[in-house]
Design a protein around this nucleic acid. Structure first.
Lengths: 340, 340
DNA sequence: TTGTAGGCGTTATCAC
DNA sequence: GTGATAACGCCTACAA
């Protein structure tokens, strides 16, 4: 039933050469070490037998695997699939395959997957899960494995990273709300231990200050994760605080969706009773009721750039870590209205 | 900079035993072959050095990898992330890690990823990409690697599989439309070379026949993929055909979303001008405008069951392939209205 | 109970 | 240019 795999030795025998020679002929880098004639004989033999090199054995010998570990905090957040796609496409075109791991925001799980990947000799990592101060990053740094951060950055800039300019993005959103006449603006901030949560909150603060507006504590809530549930919880908290909060800036679209749910449940309307802006412009968010006004950027591009940064490292590139900031753009849809 | 990895030999030396003994002490299965005392000495040494077994070497030796290859047609379809999550969770609890590959509906790409995974010695596959007649499946069968199908099944029932009962699901949806008074019901069918597309179309046909209704060719369109774009194209085609089609059953939610877009663009309203029902109840579909009436089932459960079926095979289970059908349920929301 | 030896499939480093 | 040999790190008969 189970056909024994054809190995290099088989190819060599059929071609009438030594396995080492066959190996040289089969690898582009070493093919020039071998005579034209034998090379083609080996290639023919390989084709005839349907030879597929055993990646595991090769990896053991070469200590490389042409494999990249990708850690994502939450695949069910539609933001990430396009990013992963941009990343995997680019990696693939350079001969690498991406191993995707979902951590569900669980650090312990993230570490397990990370170690598993290391045990499998991944050549590098792309982490979309980084905390500001992340022990995983220190370990990775110590192990000397190239690491690139995606979507999030770390507190120190030791690692190459790609992210949207979060602060500017939120400023765009808040300025827009202010321009619509809003003065009492609340904020559902994301987790403050990851860069996206922190930077967006900072952007909110500075935009409010610039506009000469005060931030009311009761209209400020911190989500423990970028999830719909947490957005819902925070929105209820802000709603319960009462007062005349007329607009809310959410730390990302998932939180904004949670906010929609809270409004629905309270019999309130968006943007009639409350204007809402999000961040990320994730897929499908334009089809909600109302379509969400949010901050957009190219997710695929973030992934592709992360791949580029990693490949640079994998090719031996050194020097200071590049941190790439992708430009955000406000995309105006229907979730924010003029006030009064 | 790069610390040399600690190996079994290091552990053995520190514990003052032979590497073979260390190996036995470290593996649960063989630990009983070693004296209590030395076992704990080895374990202590391993802990002290932070020993992590080299999975590549182990895999080369044992021809197993505790690794499962998962092929998904489109990660950006929100249906799949929860499935993958249910699958990965269950696999992980049995000591396996899932390698996720996205094929983007591209067969050639799917094959490349499949081969890559095979070269990495995955112990089995979970394929959500299967065509009715899929050469990949034959190859896999010949190679003797356990394969389980997820979401889709193959034409022959040689492979264990988990899927929702597509035919019944669509019948539920069509019966509902009929109950609302619709007589002129169209269909945006999915690709007919995959089981979901075919079975749902069959369900549509039989439900129409049972209801004593005729299917009009001009209100029938076949999508080339389960994508928003194709749903849009098909909906425009049906709209252009004119006549009095008052309801449409879409092959899945992505197609229904495309249908929404076509209606929007034509200045038509749903469900006012056209009732629409979908299939899958994918995440976020309940928040669209209008919330989609669709056929639901537990995505995580499909993934978890697929994992169970595979694990059974991996544990040497044999016998005829089980095909598990998960029960569908109609979930009524706002996209279908009474007619007239 | 522990040590020895061999090999999984490749590739790198020697010789020839 | 090609062949022989060793080694990557681990596991497992077999021997002691």
């Amino acid at each position: 039933m189970r056909e024994p795999a054809v190995t290099l030795k088989d190819v060599a025998k059929l071609a009438g050469v030594h396995p080492a020679t066959a190996s040289r002929a089969l690898n582009l880098e070493t093919r020039l070490l071998v005579s034209e004639a034998t090379a083609s004989r080996v290639l023919a033999a390989a084709a005839e037998l349907g030879y597929q090199p055993n990646a595991v054995a090769r990896s053991l010998r070469t200590r490389r695997s042409n494999t990249v570990g990708v850690l994502v905090p939450d695949l069910t957040n539609p933001l990430f699939p396009p990013m992963v796609r941009g990343l995997a496409d680019r990696l693939e075109s350079h001969g690498y395959v991406a191993l995707i791991g979902n951590t569900d925001g669980d650090d312990a799980r993230g570490r397990r997957v990370f170690e598993q990947m290391r045990a499998r000799h991944v050549d590098g990592y792309v982490l979309a899960t980084a905390h500001l101060h992340d022990p995983l990053l220190e370990d990775a740094g110590r192990a000397g494995v190239p690491v690139v951060l995606m979507n999030r950055v770390a507190a120190n800039e030791d690692f190459p990273a790609v992210t949207v300019d979060n602060e500017s993005g939120v400023r765009l959103a808040v300025q827009y709300l202010v321009g619509l006449g809003h003065r009492n603006i609340g904020c559902i901030a994301g987790p403050q231990d990851v860069s996206t949560g922190l930077a967006r909150y900072h952007g909110f603060q500075s935009a409010m200050t610039d506009a000469g507006l005060d931030m009311a504590d009761e209209w400020l809530a911190f989500a423990r994760s970028f999830s719909i549930d947490e957005g819902y919880r925070c929105a209820r908290q802000i709603l319960a605080a009462g007062g005349r909060c007329t607009a809310v800036a959410a730390g990302n679209d998932m939180l904004a969706v949670g906010c929609y749910r809270a409004l629905d449940e309270a019999g309130l309307s968006c943007p009639g009773d409350l204007s809402v802006v999000g961040f990320n412009d994730m897929p499908f968010i334009d089809m909600l009721r109302p379509p969400l006004t949010t901050v957009t950027f190219s997710h695929q591009q973030v992934g592709a750039q992360a791949a580029d940064l990693l490949i640079e490292r994998l090719n031996g590139g050194t020097g200071p870590a590049k941190v790439v900031y992708v430009a955000p753009e406000l995309i105006i849809r229907g979730s924010a209205a003029r006030y009064p």
